[in-house]
Computed example of a mutant assay.
Amino acid sequence: MPELPEVETTKNGIAPHILNKTISAIEIRQPQLRWPIPAEVSEKLPNQTVRDVTRRGKYIGVHTDAGTLIIHLGMSGSLYFVEPNTPPLFHDHVDIHFGAQSPVLRYTDPRRFGAMMWQEGNWTDHELLNHLGPEPLTQAFNVDYLYAKTRGRKQAIKQFIMDSKVVVGVGNIYANEALFMAGIRPTRAAGNISKARLAVFVEKIKLVLAAAIEQGGTTLRDFIGGDGKPGYFKQELKVYGRAEQPCRVCQTPLKEIRQGQRSTVYCVQCQK
């Protein structure tokens, strides 16, 4: 599933090619994604100029004067460019056209868990976004904030940090990695972690996300960035996907468990 670095990479990949371009047409071949694509998308986007492309959590906002097209990549969605008149494949559900001579922005989604929604006015007022926590790479996400949020919480720290109401974009891959880098066992109760250890955890979350963005995200199965290239951060993973392999620090075989139906991999020696 594309996580924050993959979504940021996609946004950065498509933005230079669509900024200040006028949308000539929207071609929707499959209107039923995770939710039906609202009629406003096909009614209001044509003839609008793209003023900005931004990200909030795992959502991409394509902003026009009429409103914002909100895109979520779901489990297997991706955005990429094709030449005009390129025949669509079976899972290519939406094309955004920018004139007869311009490349077409194509949305493909084999599992159809992604979404395209519409919002007029402030796009973060949309019901999918208005409850989201702070962005992890901003100053709003800091140790004072996280310490206050964790007090009294018995939930395991890994599941806690993956809650988008607490902080956005710390998905399964990067939660595993940041916890390892901070030396925190993923099963430890969030409320039982000291402020000093949480300060390290916040630092490592920021570090691992920034590094993944720098390298274009993590390609595991379906993800391809908006520039059509895979992400290379998989080569840097220290624990995720490495169950039973030796810890890169102490050589102890890494342990894998399930938390909230997600794979958790950690080192029983390095993480306490």
Rank of each mutant, 00 (worst) to 15 (best):
V82Q: 04
S76D: 11
I28H: 08
H91C: 13
Q235S: 04
L69I: 04
P46S: 07
Y174M: 05
P16Y: 14
L73I: 07
P246A: 10
T64I: 01
R151M: 15
Y59D: 04
L105A: 00
F223H: 13
S263E: 08
Q259Y: 03
K238I: 01
V168Q: 14
A148H: 13
K21W: 01
R185V: 15
F223V: 14
I213M: 09
R188W: 01
W35P: 06
H17G: 09
I70D: 10
K229Q: 14
L89Y: 07
N20L: 09
T264Y: 03
V143W: 10
N172Y: 06
F201H: 00
T218K: 04
I157V: 12
H126L: 14
P31F: 05
C267F: 03
G225Y: 00
Q159G: 15
A211D: 14
P134N: 02
H17P: 00
L4K: 04
E83I: 06
P110M: 04
E120T: 13
R55M: 09
M116S: 05
V62D: 02
A39F: 08
V239Q: 04
C270P: 09
A243V: 02
N176T: 07
M181S: 14
P103S: 13
P110C: 03
F98P: 01
R221K: 07
A210E: 07
P103R: 05
P84M: 10
V104T: 05
M75D: 13
G171F: 08
I161S: 01
F113P: 10
Q101P: 11
M181I: 11
H91I: 05
E203C: 03
V168H: 12
H126Q: 00
M1V: 15
K165F: 01
T138D: 12
E3V: 11
E177L: 06
G61P: 02
H63C: 10
P186G: 08
V208C: 06
V104P: 03
D144L: 14
A189I: 06
V62I: 14
C250S: 02
F81Q: 10
P36W: 06
F201W: 09
T49G: 10
V94N: 03
M116V: 04
K234Y: 08
Q235I: 00
V170C: 11
K44C: 09
Q271M: 09
A199R: 07
K238G: 01
M181W: 07
W123F: 11
C247V: 01
L237V: 07
A148Q: 13
V200W: 00
H91K: 00
G216I: 00
G260T: 11
L69T: 02
V166I: 15
D125F: 09
C267G: 11
E214M: 02
V167N: 11
L220Q: 05
A15Y: 01
N130G: 07
E203Y: 01
A211R: 10
Q159W: 07
R248Y: 02
P36F: 06
M117N: 11
T218S: 13
I28R: 05
R56C: 03
P2A: 02
I60Q: 10
I96D: 03
I23S: 10
E3A: 13
K58W: 02
L4C: 07
K195Y: 12
T124N: 06
R29P: 13
G171P: 03
